[in-house]
């Protein structure tokens, strides 16, 4: 069992990703004496108030001033502390992108960023508080590790793993009551950079990340009723990407659908496309997510449906991709 996982959170089914994160952070505070938590007037919203209560001297609320937030974290990391910064994804990845780049990544500072309310998970708040660009921004930062856990359990495992991971890590989580994907904290293997194979299949692969993963599993089950064999990968780490798992899917199914609560430009789907293109192997790829538009207001689950990132949308896409006739030739040897 990984360091930090000698405890369990029994009530995880009833907790949001952010609440679980708050619990885990507090536990880690006892384990890592140099861990400090920073936020920008979002201690309540990012659920790290519990850490503040247990470690008032190691908690820093800088007010609504995100540029200073990352600068301070950089200085702390340079001087023996382990800063964990929590704020909304829109502010961490966009408002102060240059500070994350220059103060954290460029200077190789060991800062962990937990970005809540990512994608469209803050439904009714609208585009200013959604973030459908962060995977693109963070992927482009040299040295940044990018993770999008699927549920509260994965969030807990990702945060624990990030503590022992050398270098900056960006973990994007949701806001709402994402349904649990896993049964418990230790019912699955979690390793940064290793996709979780949720379902084997031979006709098509659905690669999902973050809060779209449970819908992908549901879609696979629905398609199975129609006689289709759907492989499902939970690609929780967008960078470094699991080339092996993606290539296995390419070779086994030659049809891939990616699903992400993010703009389809330069997000997880694009990262998968890079892998496929570099391999020289032929594969149909359909990217589900926001099709280069700003998000509408709505309940978080409704938005998944609206943007066809839920089980219904994925099943529809499976139907479309299965109809595509992309290569009559079954011989792989002529490709590269």
């Amino acid at each position: 069992m990984a360091k930090g996982l000698t405890w369990t959170i029994d009530d995880a089914d009833h907790m949001t990703q952010a609440e679980i994160y708050g619990e885990v952070l507090t536990k880690l505070g006892y384990e890592y004496k140099n861990l400090v938590a920073l936020t920008a007037d979002l201690a309540g919203s990012t659920k790290i108030g519990r850490f503040q209560k247990d470690f008032p001297d190691r908690f820093f609320n800088v007010g609504i001033a995100e540029m200073n937030l990352f600068g301070m974290a950089s200085g702390m990391a340079a001087s023996g502390l382990l800063p964990v910064v929590s704020t909304f994804a829109a502010f961490a990845a966009l408002r102060c992108a240059e500070h994350v780049r220059t103060d954290v990544c460029y200077q190789k500072r060991n800062v962990k960023i937990i970005a809540t309310h990512s994608g469209t998970s803050f439904g009714q708040a609208g585009t200013t508080h959604h973030c459908t660009e962060d995977l693109a921004v963070m992927r482009a930062m040299a040295g940044m590790t990018v993770i999008a856990p699927a549920d509260a359990y994965e969030t807990a495992r990702a945060v624990v793993a990030a503590m022992e991971w050398d270098g900056p890590v960006y973990i994007r989580i949701g806001r709402s009551f994402e349904p649990p994907l896993h049964k418990s904290m230790d019912s699955f293997d979690f390793e940064i950079g290793k996709a979780i194979k949720l379902r084997e299949g031979t006709d098509i692969t659905v690669i999902a990340t973050g809060r779209t993963v449970p819908g992908a599993v549901e879609a696979a089950e629905m398609a199975a009723n129609e006689g289709l064999s759907v492989k499902v990968l939970d690609l929780h780490t967008i960078k470094p990407i699991d080339v092996e798992a993606i290539m296995e899917a390419v070779m086994e199914t030659r049809r891939i659908i990616t699903v992400e609560d993010h703009n389809v430009y330069s997000g997880m789907g694009s990262a998968v496309a890079d892998v496929i293109a570099a391999s020289g192997k032929g594969c149909v790829l359909k990217k589900l997510g926001l099709q280069d538009e700003f998000s509408i207001v709505g309940y978080p689950d409704d938005l998944l449906h609206y943007y066809k990132m839920d089980a219904d949308g994925i099943v529809e896409a499976i139907g479309q991709v299965m109809k595509m006739d992309f290569e009559a030739d079954e011989d792989w040897e002529d490709e590269i």
Binding site: N34, V36, D57, R58, F60, M67, N68, F70, G71, M72, A73, S74, G75, M76, A77, A78, S79, G80, L81, P83, E98, H99, T102, D103, Y106, Q107
Partner: peptide, 24 residues
């Protein structure tokens, strides 16, 4: 001690270093 150039970064980094001294 810190890579600078882009303006408006150094003071925040300095505050982080100073607070780290105090905490430790």
């Amino acid at each position: 001690d810190a890579s600078t150039g882009s303006l408006g970064h150094g003071l925040s980094i300095g505050i982080g270093m100073a607070i780290a001294a105090r905490l430790q």
